[in-house]
Amino acid sequence: MLIIAVVVFSLSLVSARPSPFLGFGQTSSSASTTPLSQDTISATLLKPARFSQIAYCSTAAVKAWDCGAPCQSVPDIKVLLASGDNADIPDFYVAYDPSSQTLVIAHQGTDPENIQSIANDVALGLTPISSTEFPSAPSGVKVHKGFQETFLRTSSQITSLVSKSLTSQSPGPITNVLVTGHSLGAAIAVMDAIDIKTNILTGSLTGIKLDCVVFGLPRGGNQDWANFVDQTLGTSLSHTSNKNDPIPTLPPLFLSFQHPSGEIHITTSGDNVACPGQENKNCSDGNSVADDKLSDHDGPYFGVEMGSDACTA
Rank of each mutant, 00 (worst) to 15 (best):
V7C: 10
L13Q: 08
P18W: 02
F24A: 14
S30E: 06
T33I: 09
P35F: 01
Q38G: 06
A43L: 03
L46E: 10
S52Y: 06
Q53P: 14
A55D: 15
Y56K: 05
S58A: 06
T59M: 08
A64Q: 15
W65G: 07
A69Q: 12
P70I: 13
L80S: 02
G84K: 10
A87D: 05
D91R: 14
F92D: 15
S100D: 04
Q101K: 10
L103I: 10
D111G: 08
E113N: 13
I115A: 11
A123C: 13
K142L: 06
K145D: 07
R153N: 10
S156T: 11
T159D: 11
S170Q: 15
T175G: 12
T175K: 13
L178F: 01
G185A: 07
M191V: 07
D192I: 07
A193V: 00
T202A: 08
G203S: 08
G207W: 11
G221M: 06
D224M: 15
A226F: 09
L233E: 03
K243T: 08
P252L: 09
P252H: 03
H259R: 01
P260G: 04
G262V: 03
G270C: 11
G277Q: 02
E279P: 00
S288T: 02
V289I: 04
H297C: 07
P300E: 06
V304W: 04
E305P: 00
S308E: 08
A310T: 10
